[in-house]
Amino acid sequence: MLRLAAPLALALALGSTAANAAPSPFRDFFSMFEQQAVPRQVVAFNGRYAPGTVVVSTSQRRLYYVLGNGQAVQYGVGVGREGFAWSGAKTVTMKKEWPDWRPPSQMLKRRPDLPRYMAGGSDNPLGSRALYLGSSLYRIHGSNEPETIGAAVSSGCIRMTNRDVQDLYDRVRVGTKVVVIR
């Protein structure tokens, strides 16, 4: 019986995402890549951060949701590429499911081929969920390019698999502190 208790506790800590999966027919496509990403898991975490804090290590390409008692949920993430990496503290000011996307003017200057607006959905680069960070242009969001998780490829946003960002979205509240370290 003890052997079943630990996996059950871990499953409860990590949460079930079956109800939040991407709409069909994309579910199988996303799952194929998400299985290759760093697995979400509860890990030992020795930091000075309060439970509920989100800590992103851009050098490790990991995001930690601090549980307390020396533990955190660890996720693999994609981070800002050379020239777009940043660090500091922000606050989650808004949360959106299947968010619309309007590329910032700075991005449009670099990439005039981008659309000016994309409705939320499986083709949208923000993926299934987005956590908006203060008044900055940065977000923690899902991705329609899950193969980029673990890489430095974004314009400064923190990318997660859609499955992982849905799990984090359910844990995080507006007002949550997000600390990005290098």
Rank of each mutant, 00 (worst) to 15 (best):
R81V: 08
T148C: 07
G142N: 06
S122W: 09
G70M: 04
Y132V: 04
G127W: 10
R116K: 14
A130K: 01
K96L: 09
M118Y: 05
D100P: 07
V77G: 04
K109N: 13
Q71E: 15
Y132Q: 01
P103K: 03
S155L: 10
N162V: 14
N124W: 06
P115A: 10
R102T: 15
V73K: 01
P125N: 12
L137V: 15
I140R: 01
G78L: 03
Q74P: 07
P99E: 05
N69F: 14
D113E: 15
L108I: 14
E145A: 15
R110P: 06
E145F: 08
G127T: 13
G80I: 04
P112W: 10
A152W: 04
S136P: 01
P103A: 04
L137G: 09
K95Q: 01
N124H: 10
K96F: 02
L131D: 01
A89G: 14
R110C: 06
H141P: 09
G80W: 03
Q166T: 13
M118I: 14
A130N: 06
V92I: 11
R110L: 15
A130I: 04
L114Q: 11
A130G: 05
G150Q: 07
R129L: 09
S87V: 05
T148P: 08
K95C: 03
S87Y: 09
S136A: 15
P103I: 02
M118V: 13
Y169P: 00
A151M: 10
G156T: 07
S87L: 11
L108A: 13
S128F: 10
V92S: 01
W86P: 10
S135A: 14
G70W: 04
P104H: 08
V92A: 03
G88R: 05
G142H: 04
Y75N: 02
P99W: 03
Q106G: 08
G134H: 03
G120A: 06
L133I: 08
M160S: 07
S155A: 12
K109H: 12
N144W: 13
L137K: 11
W86H: 11
D113S: 13
L131Q: 03
V92L: 01
D164L: 00
V153Y: 09
Y138E: 02
K109E: 12
Q106H: 11
N124T: 07
N144L: 12
K109F: 12
S143E: 06
L114S: 05
I149S: 00
P146T: 14
K109R: 15
N69H: 11
Y132N: 02
G78Q: 12
E82K: 14
L137T: 08
Q106P: 10
G120K: 07
L114W: 07
A89T: 15
G78E: 12
Y132I: 05
P125V: 13
S143H: 00
G80A: 12
V92E: 00
A72Q: 04
P104K: 05
L108T: 15
Q71K: 15
R159W: 08
P146W: 14
G83V: 05
C157Y: 00
